[in-house]
Amino acid sequence: MKIDIGISDNDRKAIAEGLSAVLADTFALYIKTHGFHWNVTGPMFNTLHTMFMQQYTELWTALDEIAERIRALGYPAPASFTQFAKLTSVTEETAVPQANDMIRQLVAGHETVARTARGIFPLAEEANDQPTADLLTQRLQIHEKTAWMLRSLLE
């Protein structure tokens, strides 16, 4: 059935593609955060283990919200490691870094997702797509606050 929500097909496609990159970045950051939760060691173990769990839980919830917005726009959400790897800007970590390096990488990851999300705003605003703009605003608030909190641990 044709979608007629007041956003052109071209705009819906462009926004869905942008949101797919946000979804991929979020998934990559989720994996990294969860892995760091499992593997963190050192004097800040308990604090970081708990903090990382809160962060990966929030990211997990966000994945569904982002994917559902892509679907509401009429496009399939990427849902494979291969698709995510092609779309993400978040760097993968295959080793187990020290705790402070984990924190630095997560700051960089949250800032990456924020940049990706911010890049979609012009599309959403031009298309008068308030639900996507609202979703992006919420995601930006969370990623910027999380980056700040993590960055504060390094000072």
Score class of each variant (00 low, 15 high):
Val22Cys: 13
Thr94Cys: 01
Phe121Leu: 15
Ile15Leu: 11
Tyr75Cys: 08
Ala85Pro: 08
Lys86Thr: 12
Thr146Gly: 04
Ala62Trp: 03
Gln141Lys: 10
Asp25Leu: 09
Gln83Asp: 12
Leu87Tyr: 04
Phe52Tyr: 15
Glu126Trp: 00
Gly109Tyr: 10
Tyr56Ile: 05
Ile3Trp: 02
Ala79Ser: 14
Val96Ala: 12
Leu135Ser: 11
Pro43Val: 11
Pro97Ser: 12
Ala99His: 11
Ile15Cys: 09
Glu65Thr: 14
Trp38Glu: 09
Glu58Met: 07
Ala95Phe: 03
Gln141Thr: 12
Gln141Phe: 00
Ser20His: 04
Thr146Cys: 07
Phe27Gln: 14
Ala108Ser: 09
Thr88Pro: 09
Gln130Ser: 09
Ile70His: 03
Thr112Tyr: 00
Pro131Ser: 04
Thr132Asp: 09
Asp134Trp: 01
Ile103Arg: 01
Ala77Asn: 05
Ile142Glu: 13
Thr82Ile: 12
Thr132Met: 11
Asn10Pro: 03
Tyr56Asp: 05
Gly6Trp: 09
Pro76Phe: 03
Ala28Glu: 11
Val107Glu: 07
Asn100Cys: 07
Met51Ala: 13
Gly6Lys: 07
Asp134Lys: 00
Pro131Gln: 06
Gln55Arg: 06
Gly74Ser: 12
Leu106Lys: 01
Ala117Gln: 08
Thr82Glu: 15
Arg12Asn: 13
Glu144Met: 09
Ile120Pro: 05
Gly18Asn: 03
Asp11Asn: 04
Lys86Ala: 15
Ala67His: 00
Arg12Gly: 14
Ala85Cys: 05
Ala67Asn: 08
Asp25Pro: 07
Gly6Ser: 11
Ala16Gly: 08
Ala127Gln: 07
Leu19Gly: 09
Glu17Gln: 14
Thr88Tyr: 02
Ser80Phe: 11
Ile31Trp: 02
Thr47Ser: 04
Thr47Lys: 04
Gly18His: 02
Pro122Glu: 14
Ile70Gly: 10
Asp101Arg: 02
Thr132Leu: 08
Thr26Glu: 10
Ala147Ser: 06
His143Gln: 12
Thr88Glu: 10
Asn100Arg: 04
Phe27Val: 13
Arg104Glu: 14
Arg104Pro: 05
Ala67Met: 07
Ala147Val: 06
Asn46Thr: 14
Thr112Gln: 10
Phe36Gln: 02
Asp9Lys: 01
Ala72Arg: 04
Leu123Met: 08
Val22Asn: 01
Ile70Gln: 10
Glu65Val: 11
Ser20Ala: 14
Val113Met: 06
Gly74Phe: 12
Phe84Trp: 05
Lys32Trp: 01
Asp25Trp: 00
Pro131His: 03
Thr94Lys: 04
Ile66Glu: 06
Ile7His: 01
Thr137Ala: 13
Asp129Met: 08
Leu19Arg: 02
Lys32Cys: 14
Thr26Asn: 13
His49Trp: 04
Ala147Met: 08
Asp64His: 02
Ala67Thr: 12
Thr47Glu: 15
Ala67Asp: 13
Phe84Gly: 10
Pro122Met: 08
Pro122Ile: 14
Ile7Gln: 03
Ile15Pro: 07
Thr137Arg: 02
Lys32Thr: 13
Asn100Leu: 10
Leu48Ala: 05
Asp134Arg: 00
Glu58Cys: 00
Arg69Asp: 03
Ala14Cys: 03
Arg139Pro: 12
Gly6Tyr: 05
Ser20Trp: 07
Val107Gln: 06
Phe121Glu: 13
Thr33Ile: 06
Phe52Arg: 00
Leu136Tyr: 05
Leu106Gln: 06
Lys86Trp: 00
Thr88Met: 08
Arg139Phe: 11
Phe45Asp: 07
Thr26Lys: 01
Ala79Glu: 15
Thr50Val: 10
